[in-house]
Amino acid sequence: MDGSGWLILRGLCRGLHLAGYFSAFGTMALATTLPRGARVPGLRRMAWGGFALALLAGAAWFWLQTAYFAAAQTSADVVNALPIVAEYTRFGLLLLGRMAALLLAALAFQLAWARVAALLALGGVLAEAWLGHGGAMAGPEGAMLLSSAVLHLAGAAIWLGALPALALALRHLPGAEAAVLARRFSPIGAACVAVLLGTAALQFLLLVGGVGALFTTAYGALAGLKLLLLGGLITLAARNKFRLTPRLPGSRAALIRAVALEAALGLVVLLAAGVLLQLEPPAMAGMAGM
């Protein structure tokens, strides 16, 4: 299970797991910003849906990653290695711990404790950073990459994770409340974009190394694609912020469509990120062999 096909499959499972996790967290976080007294039917179902996606994609990722760790040839090899991965590797401990945190968050959300739920889920979102390059590296570069990954995850989860719930809320809330919610979300989204751009620049310097690598390595090409998609997302978000949100409630239908499109594009970005995290960054190419 060391081939490039398996690598892409592991990455896609990781991306889907992140999408489910972000969506569950984002739904809980958005619920804390609803206008007082506002009720949006379907928010709890959406949070549980995110949990289910995170769980299923996480289970598939766990299986595939275990097979990769153990260089498994058969399903029996994977089954034998699963307990070792669960108990003794950072990957296993973090994945299981994060899913437990999301389960607790979903239960708290079910009990209408939205703030507690959002905080618990946020912890699980941020813990993912310790599975990235920065979490494994020592020294100032490791600390910088880890800090940047924490901020990057927070920005992505708050912005992209809340989009499905935002579309749902815009659809169900009365016009005035929908307008209040959209105006509240607008500066939060802008702050997330700023954080994402800043951390992406740092990660580009540390992991890609230079513009040339964008055209000569698989990691660089995928990082370039992710940046392009992020550019598309920001364009959509800017249109929502500066054109559609000020015209609410008249522009509600157009805004719902735009937010749904933004969420779909966000999913593609997360899938690309999942695969990117499986690849070797070009800034350290040439170190292998000794």
Partner: peptide, 16 residues
């Protein structure tokens, strides 16, 4: 500061 702090190569995998 960002440019000064960034090393030429980050060791993003385990190498000896």
């Amino acid at each position: 500061g960002l440019i000064l702090l960034s090393p030429a190569a980050a060791f993003a995998h385990a190498f000896l």
